[in-house]
């Protein structure tokens, strides 16, 4: 199963539509999606199962069951995917399209692009190719996980401040 998430209550039509089109073209692939609070004018998927919102528990369950995650470039989505050793395809929300307040997701994507298991689609047309790469990667063996906690430097310095 591929799990697609817009990461918040705000819909992300470019992502949801691209994933829906992918499902239409690849009927053998099962995709479950979280699409946000869709309103009038928002894209409503035809070819995938979807929910508007998920509880944290449901979210964790979908991540657990998925072989690949597709998400906006939010840190919550990225961190939960890679800590669970799931390859993740990210499409950044853009500031000039009013998908976020500023272009921070674009900068985030640039910084994380080189990490193992992270595949960036800079535009929605690149999404199918990145999804194929991620699916291929998921079959190639296990992904190196990351620690459940922040790096030791940060933890040590914080701790010593909290002991002062």
């Amino acid at each position: 199963m591929i799990f697609s998430t817009v990461g918040s209550e705000l819909p992300f039509n470019r992502l949801t539509e691209a994933v829906d089109k992918y499902a239409q073209a690849n009927s053998d692939v099962v995709i479950s999606a979280q699409v946000g609070r869709i309103g009038p004018g928002d894209y409503s998927p035809q070819y995938i199962q979807f929910k508007q919102l998920l509880t944290p528990g449901e979210y964790a369950e979908y991540v657990d069951r998925a072989i690949v995650i597709v998400a906006h470039a939010g840190m919550g989505s990225i961190i939960s995917a890679i800590t669970q050793k799931k390859p993740v395809v990210i499409l950044p929300r853009r500031g000039h399209l009013q998908e976020t307040r500023n272009d921070h997701q674009f900068s985030t994507a640039k910084q994380f692009e080189s990490r193992e298991g992270i595949f960036v689609a800079w535009e929605e047309c690149e999404l199918p190719a990145r999804m194929e790469e991620a699916l291929h990667f998921s079959q190639s063996g296990s992904m190196n996980g990351v620690s459940d906690f922040a790096n030791q430097d940060l933890l040590k310095k914080l701790e010593s401040f909290l002991r002062s």
């Binding site: 990461g7 933890l155 040590k156 914080l158 701790e159």
Partner: peptide, 18 residues
């Protein structure tokens, strides 16, 4: 909630003594 919380949780060991 969301990414802010996920990051806060990753800092927890720093305050295990508190």
């Amino acid at each position: 909630s969301g990414g802010h919380w996920v990051q806060l949780m990753r800092l927890r060991p720093a305050w295990d003594h508190c």
